[in-house]
Structures are given as C-alpha cells and as structure tokens.
Design a protein around this nucleic acid. Structure first.
Lengths: 365, 365
DNA sequence: TTGTAGGCGTTATCAA
DNA sequence: TTGATAACGCCTACAA
C-alpha cells in the first residue's frame, strides 16, 4: 500500500513532506494549506487535506514550527510560593483569570512555574523552559536569580506586585495610598489603640508580634509598603504578622490581639480581607462585637465567606485588571515595544466592620 | 572587543556552534558540556563555559532541543471550565497541587489550557500546543472533540474524574460507594424526607429543582454517579441542582429547600462541602438549627470556612493524591507503558452536622 | 499558484 | 575524550 512498508504498529509519524508527496504537491504548498498564509487552489487544498487524513497527519509539529518561527506561544507565569498557596488566594486567582484571558488573546498559553529548584532534576525553569516571555508574581529577593536567567535569555519579563529593577515593567497597586486611606479612615473614627495584622514578611512566614528591627527588614514589597503607610498614621500600632493570607491565619493573629482584654486594640487593620475575616471571627470568639467593640478593616475587596452579614471596610483592588494588564504588557514587549509600568488604584469601600470608637475605649491609656 | 563586530544593540543570539568555535572545540563537545550526557575533560569544559560567558550564551535553545529530542517537557492540563472556576474549587486546587508536584518530578511543566475555542485566533489548544501529554479534568461530552485531537496526535492522555473511553487511563473516585455510604448514614439516623443538592448537571449549569427527565440526562459523570447512588437509598428525594460548587450556590439551593416550612427536608445531602456549607448557612438564616432541625452532609472533606464550629459530615477524598497519580500515569505512558485506571477511595467522616431525626419530624407525611 | 532550497539550533550516532 | 555529520520538521524567500 504505502511506499515504505510500515509494520502495522505505529511508526514514524507522518510529516508535511509525506503529505505533500502523497498529495502530489510540494512541501510549501502543503505547508500553506495548513498555515493559510497564502491562497491555495481549492482542488489542491482538498487533495492535501485528503492525503493528510489518509496518513493521519494532524497538522504541523508545534516543536518544529516553534523552532522555525522562533516563538513557542508559551508564556511562563512564575510564583514564588507553592502553587496551592497561590491559588488559595482569591486575589491571585482573579489575577490569573485576567492574565490567562489576556494571554489567550495574544495567542499564548500559560506555563505554570514555581521558582523552587530541586523538584525534578530537569524540571523546567525560567532558565530552560521553551517560553517567549515570563510574568513574575510577587517577585522579591528569592526570585532574583531566576529573573537574571530570563533576562540573560533576552526574554521579555513583566512583574506583578514586585520589584525587578527599573528595566522591567511593573504592574502594581497604589498600596501605599490605599493603606493610608484606610488608616486615616480608622483614625477619623477616633481610634488610637490600633493593631495591624500583616501579610508575611518573607518566605519564612514567621508569625506573631514584630519588632521594629523585623519590620525594617521586610522583604515582600506589598507587605512593606502597606505597613509603612499604616505606621505613618499610627506609629505606635502593634504589628502582628500572619503566616499567609488565610482566614485561619487571621484567627490566629486575632486571638493574639484579643488575648488580654486590657491591652486589646479598638481597631485592627488587616492587610488582606481574608485576614480581616479571621480577625472578625476571633473577635466574636472573644465575645467582642464588630464594630461596636472593635473595628476591623481589610484590603483587597474580594468576596469573603464566613463573616455573616458583615461588609468589610476595605480597599478594593482591580485584581483581574492587573492580570489583564500584565498580559497586554507581555504582548507589547513581544511586539518590540517597551511598555511603561502601570499602577492601579484601589477604591476605598466603607463597610459595616468599622465604626467610631466607643466612650469606654477612648479613655484607655 | 568581540571578534564579530556587534553594533551595540542586540544581535543574533549566540548559538552552541558559536560557542564551540570560540572555544576551539566541536559542536558536539560543547553540547555535551551543557547536557552533561558524556564525560568532558575539565579543561575543555572550562574553556567552553568561558566562551559561553563571553558570548552571552545562556544554554541550549529549548525549542531546538525539543525538536531534536522529540519532547518538549510540557504537559497540558485542560479544564472544561473557566480557569477561575477551576481554581475557586478547593478540590481542584489540591489536585493541581499534587499534579504539578508529580509532573515536576517527571521533569515536566504544566501548561494550563481551557477547552474553550474562540479566545485568541491562534491560542494554543490541545491540538496545537507543544506538549508531550495531556491531563483532562472533568472530561465530559464537550471535551470529546479536543480529546480526539490529542489522541490523533498520538499523545498520552490521562483523565481525572471523567470518561474518555476505555483506552484512556482514568483517575477517579469511588463516588458511588461514598455517596451511598453517606446516604445510608443519613437513613440510619431516621431521616426519610431528604433533599439532594447536586453539582451542575452540565455546562449549562442550570439551577433549581430537577425533574426525573433532567436527572436522566446528566452529563457530568461525578454529578450523575453520586446522585444515582443517593437516589437508590432515597428514591423520593427532592433534587435541587446548584450552578457551581460554591458556598453561595449552596445558600441559594438551601433557601429553595427551606422556603416552605411544611415541606422542608429533615436532611440535606449536598454533593460538595462548599454546597453543604451554603446549605447550613441558609438553614441558620431560616432559623433552623443544624443538626437538630436539619442534618446536612457534604462531600470532599476539604477545610471549609464560614460554618463556625461545625464539622461537616462528609466523604473525605484524597484530592492531592489524585493529582499525583495522574502525574505518575503520565510518566508511565511517556515511558511506553499503558497504566491501568486508578480508583481512589473516600473516607467517611461523621461530623457534627448530621444527627438523628427529631420526634416532631418523623411524624411528617 | 506552485516548486526549490536553505536554514532554524540541537543532539544522536558513529568513528577517530 | 573529542569531532564530523546527519537528521529533527517546518517555513519562507525566491524563482518559475
């Protein structure tokens, strides 16, 4: 039947040249039939397609095409943390959603990468994966090394909520301003004894009360900037760091804060809505009413489960838009432009979880 | 400085042959220095590395290597739904976590794919992406087409919680047995007026009371199997389908169930923990106590926020293990084996959300 | 509209 | 231990 006797079982896959030969046309013609980059006579087209069907040819090998074109159609999205942690965070989830949309429009797929060496010996990394560009999320010190690798490869890089030097376009939030606005809101309500529950300081994710020294060494930019702004309004605030942006972590931090009735804060500013939700739960556990006995503010503006009828006072961030913007930035860079960094603005939302400090409280030392 | 005058700007990237020439060795030797697939004299090695550094060569081009080797080191993970929905689901998140781990050990990256055509004109798909294998999640009718595309490419495919024909290894759960166990538990507690809150029936995700006809046409295997088992124990159960596995959807379904005090069920079996959490919330909203007035059971065994001190009665499924198993199966197939399908077993957990039917209730029609 | 030829950057094979 | 050579499969000038 076929010219080269194939022994029943699967053999070498058909290539475009096989198809061309079978259809009695040249490789280029066959190629064009599949790419559509040039007009082909209808009859020819059909002959080629028929031959392809016959041979079980399912279209150009993406690897070869990729080599030839110099593009793989894949963009890496690199997380610093375990992917589980990344996707447990509603903000990141929303961001990924915008990002995948943006990249899909561009015609790229998303390769999930974790910047944690030592998994597989030859697991793909930012330095070795067949990617056209990379998006780094929450990039801080740890990722620096991989960043250099991508940069050395000459690949476009965009960073979301992180700092990778001035050459690398950033997608970020007005974290400082938003945090300041929240703090001023709380201050305007009369609160003076205030506590801050922060996101993790660094990859160590140490929990608990933070000393000024520790605060000065915060690695994660988001944590640092939000905290600094808050401390400018409340220099004496008690600072407790959480191990992650999770409700449970908020509960833990909240229990710490409400343990001693005499020293408990009248307002808690949490660096994420999930943490705030946890703090609220801890408050209710401790028999405190929100916001009568204690005000709680969050950050993010996500839909939080588990806080009943409360509406969090928070800074609403455009998470999905951030992702989409990163996608756009990648597209631009791939097109040879050098996109500017973008700063998104949070919207202050006054909910039902903050209220004026009550008389009894103002008398506190 | 450099031998070939490069006009300041970026030029053609150095290739291994440039490096070889600069180091005064052959291409093969240079290649081996980077791949480590054969011993190289230390002196030679250093010379090559030095030349590479000089030329800014950062290692083999993965696209070319991929063409040559016939492997890209990338495995696609395809979802039927919007990625946001996928990652909102704690079960899928945990599964992805296990899966990425498993694949990383294998040395593969994870390419996220959504089986939804019409995003970008040339967005990568299961048919065109440079992948070595694919993992399909929740595969049902809609994905059939893409599945055929991958199969036609001769790529290994593994399906998690879905059905792709007998040739394709499945990773699944003993959904039927687990659901039956839950139902029997509820029955043993004396409940007779029982309602089921199901996962979506199909991609339409229609909400509300389901007729027997609709039930007969359920597309999503997980929904269908769990429901069938439950109905074998409670043939007359009221069946309400949710639009997604979300707490909010559970609340909606719950409100439907508890709307009419006279016809309300004494027990609700939800097909996911998130739905169960929503049902509990709806029950409390309606002034019902759980489990005194109404028992609620879930499915999955995830940590649910927002149900206070309750511990859900549920079937605990090994979600991360499922993902890891899929990774293993892919590895096997890549190695030429034909792995068998795997069925994981759920563990029944009796929590505090189910209890005996109370006297008043048993008298109901 | 179709055909020809050269190369994209590697790596496997084999010989030296 | 090193080197020469031939694919890997496709695409795209360019010529016909």
């Amino acid at each position: 039947m076929s010219s080269d006797a194939e022994p029943a079982g699967r053999h070498r896959r058909a290539t475009i040249s096989d198809v061309a030969r079978a259809a009695g046309v040249s490789m280029s013609t066959a190629s064009v039939v599949f790419s559509g980059k040039a007009p082909v006579a209808e009859a020819t087209r059909e002959r080629v397609l028929a031959a392809a069907g016959e041979l079980g040819y399912t279209g150009p090998d993406p690897r070869a095409a990729s080599l030839r074109r110099g593009r793989s159609g894949i963009v890496a999205v690199a997380f610093e943390e375990h992917l589980r942690t990344a996707f447990l965070d509603p903000v990141k989830t929303a961001m990924m959603d915008g990002l995948t949309d943006g990249l899909a429009e561009l015609g790229s797929g998303v390769l999930l990468l974790r910047d944690e060496p030592g998994l597989g010996p030859d697991a793909p990394t930012l330095a070795t994966a067949p990617i056209d560009a990379a998006v780094l999320i929450g990039c801080s010190g740890r990722m620096r090394e991989s960043l250099d690798a991508v940069l050395a490869r000459g690949l476009p890089v965009v960073v979301i909520e992180g700092d990778a030097g001035d050459e690398v376009p950033r997608i970020e939030l007005d974290n400082g301003e938003a945090a300041a606005q929240l703090a001023h809101h709380v201050r305007a309500l009369g609160h003076r004894r205030v506590a801050v529950v922060t996101l993790p300081f660094d990859a160590e994710r140490e929990r608990g009360d933070a000393t000024p020294e520790r605060i000065a060494q915060i690695v994660l930019p988001v944590t640092r900037i939000r905290l600094q702004s808050t401390l400018e309004v409340f220099p004496d605030a008690r600072v407790v760091s959480a191990g992650a942006s999770l409700i449970d972590e908020g509960v833990i931090a909240g229990r710490t804060l409400f343990a001693d009735p005499r020293s408990r804060p009248t307002a808690v500013i949490a660096q994420s809505d999930l943490l705030a939700a946890g703090v609220i739960r801890a408050a209710e556990e401790a028999g405190l009413r929100v916001p009568e006995d204690v005000s709680v503010a969050g950050f993010d503006g996500i839909a939080v489960d588990g806080i009943g009828e409360h509406v969090l006072t928070t800074a609403v961030q455009p998470a999905a838009e951030k992702g989409r913007a990163a996608g756009d930035a990648v597209a631009r860079m791939l097109a040879g432009e050098q996109p500017a960094s973008i700063r998104f603005t949070c919207t202050f939302r006054e909910g039902t979880t903050t209220g004026p400090v009550t008389g009894a409280e103002t008398r506190a030392p």
